[in-house]
Nucleic acid binder design. Structure first.
Lengths: 151, 151
DNA sequence: ATGAGTGCAAAGGCTTTGCATTAGG
DNA sequence: CCTAATGCAAAGCCTTTGCACTCAT
């Protein structure tokens, strides 16, 4: 986890390749931007962070990167998808989300809680016939900015 | 928690009233449908479950019910909003989500894990200047149906 | 009567798709 | 060369909004 830039790109390239996909400059730029951002970002953000990337290409490439396990996509209450590098590249973490502005901050969780949740996932999955892929713990609240603002 | 139907409607009515809203028949029908569904449902589902309810009214009323704290809205990876009755009406629980079909099942979590997460929420919130409103724990995987399907 | 609530249809915003062009292997 | 990838514009889908009508108080 927390791979160096070079290592990151190598891993990304390998995963795409084993998916029968190329690691093009657009895709590299997206991975780069996600690494630099170091927090979940929307497609709009990514278009700002990269340059000369068509919106449709961003969506298409993010879908491919997700399929290859390089990025992770999720949606918060503001209905816009956010992307971040896959957890096995950056380390397992959870999210602190502002219910007002939709902002997301990465957080780390004590091992005790993490273990409890992991065990739970196994048990619950078995009980319901689900194959658990991952879990997601969100703490939802109001960020200092939005608390202060006169709404 | 797990209020009787009568109690449920009474509580819903009160909350709307203290929000300066009426408990109209459309709103009652939505609450009724959510209670019967007993799982998070999409607006499309709600339109099927109720009858003669305009789509726009569904959205508008759900927003008002959410504002009044009667229902809770959230989004899974399939980008469609789901609604359920507020947790203080049905009991605190979490979700088991199918990453393929977007289906959601309510689950309950052992007190030990729950306590750990609650404490965590307090700590993390303080550390980041957030006022935590609630937390959300999702177990994401593939339901038995989708595992079997030849994709 | 008077404003909230409703239905219908149109508009919005994020995302996906079609198609001709470009580029990587 | 030949298919994958790209950009542009159009289309889609969920959701929101405008407006006239209806209902409750």
């Amino acid at each position: 986890m927390n791979a160096s830039p070079a290592e990151l790109h190598r891993t990304a390239g390998e995963r795409l390749q084993s998916d029968g996909q190329r690691y093009t400059s657009n895709r590299r730029a997206l991975v780069e931007a996600l690494a630099v951002a170091d927090r979940p970002v929307s497609v709009t953000d990514l278009l700002d962070l990269t340059s000369g990337l068509a919106q449709s290409s961003a969506y298409r490439n993010l879908a491919i990167l997700e399929e290859a396990g390089v990025v992770h996509r999720f949606v918060t209450s503001d209905d816009t998808a956010r992307y971040e590098l896959s957890e096995d590249l950056t380390g397992h973490h959870h999210h602190l989300i502002c219910s007002k502005c939709g902002d997301v901050v990465d957080i780390e969780v004590p091992a005790a809680v993490e273990d409890g949740v992991s065990q739970l996932a196994v048990d619950i999955g078995a009980a319901h016939g689900y194959t658990i892929e991952h879990h997601q713990l969100d703490l939802v609240g109001t960020c200092s900015n939005c608390s202060t603002a006169t709404r």
